[in-house]
């Protein structure tokens, strides 16, 4: 196990090599006092902190990240705490390489959470968005494809939502049956860009481009 450079005193990043059961290893790591795994992945890395998006990006050197796809989120807390635990992207302990960002409110959160908990899943926060990460990880672990999981969620998850899922090699989106939460999509041969607002896409693509709004119950999955 080797440590990457620590950006803060409270968040540490480690590169670990291991064989065997990942969940047992994760549980073992958390046996240390005050230790909590914020995310774990072989292809994805999750960065979460409080503060301005520019400050967090600079603190963790996000501009130096190399990869095929990434998702990000700045949260306006409405129904759960303002803390790192409640920040997006969410993941699902101990499934690696699943991350979710979500805009919306899930109205059958507690019912679905209890269902997931009965299946042995753990929730780290009281934020409804976490359900989508656990739900997705649960489905993927059962061998359901990401696309099918996203489609299934439109029927099983109540409320208004638009959410994105990043896995090691896929990027997906789903929009609820009311299409109540925004998403702007830009799609070209070599780049996919999605955001709640046009202005976010224009910040990285200032030239004139064609964008669309996905409709209700729309699901899309792209391969990295």
């Amino acid at each position: 196990m080797k440590s990457k450079k620590a950006d803060t005193e409270y968040a540490l990043r480690y590169v670990i090599s291991h064989d065997g059961d990942t969940s047992k290893m994760a549980a073992h790591i958390e046996e240390g006092e005050g230790v909590e795994i914020m995310s774990m992945g072989s292809g994805l890395e999750l960065i979460k902190d409080l503060g301005d998006a520019d400050d967090v990006a600079a603190l963790y050197g996000l501009n130096d990240f190399q990869g095929t796809h990434g998702i990000g989120h700045t949260r306006m807390a409405t129904e759960s705490d303002v803390d790192i635990r409640s920040a997006h992207p969410y993941w699902a302990f101990p499934y690696n390489d699943v991350s979710v960002v979500h805009n919306g409110q899930i109205t059958n959160y507690w019912i679905m959470r209890r269902t997931m908990e009965r299946n042995g899943h753990r929730f780290m926060s009281n934020c409804d968005s976490e359900l989508l990460a656990v739900y997705t990880a649960h489905n993927l672990s059962k061998g359901i494809s990401l696309e099918d999981s996203l489609r299934q969620s439109i029927g099983e998850i109540d409320g208004v939502f638009t959410y994105l899922v990043a896995t090691k090699d896929q990027l997906g989106m789903a929009k609820d049956t009311m299409a109540a939460k925004p998403l702007v999509l830009y799609e070209s041969d070599d780049l996919i860009a999605m955001a709640s607002e046009e202005v976010a896409i224009r910040a990285i693509l200032p030239e004139e481009i064609d964008t669309t709004d996905p409709y209700d119950e729309e699901v899309r999955v792209w391969q990295a």
């Binding site: 607002e197 046009e198 202005v199 896409i201 224009r202 910040a203 200032p206």
Partner: peptide, 11 residues
């Protein structure tokens, strides 16, 4: 007649 340039998604 006023022409605005570079709105870039402004609200």
């Amino acid at each position: 007649t006023i022409v605005l340039h570079n709105p870039r998604g402004m609200h």
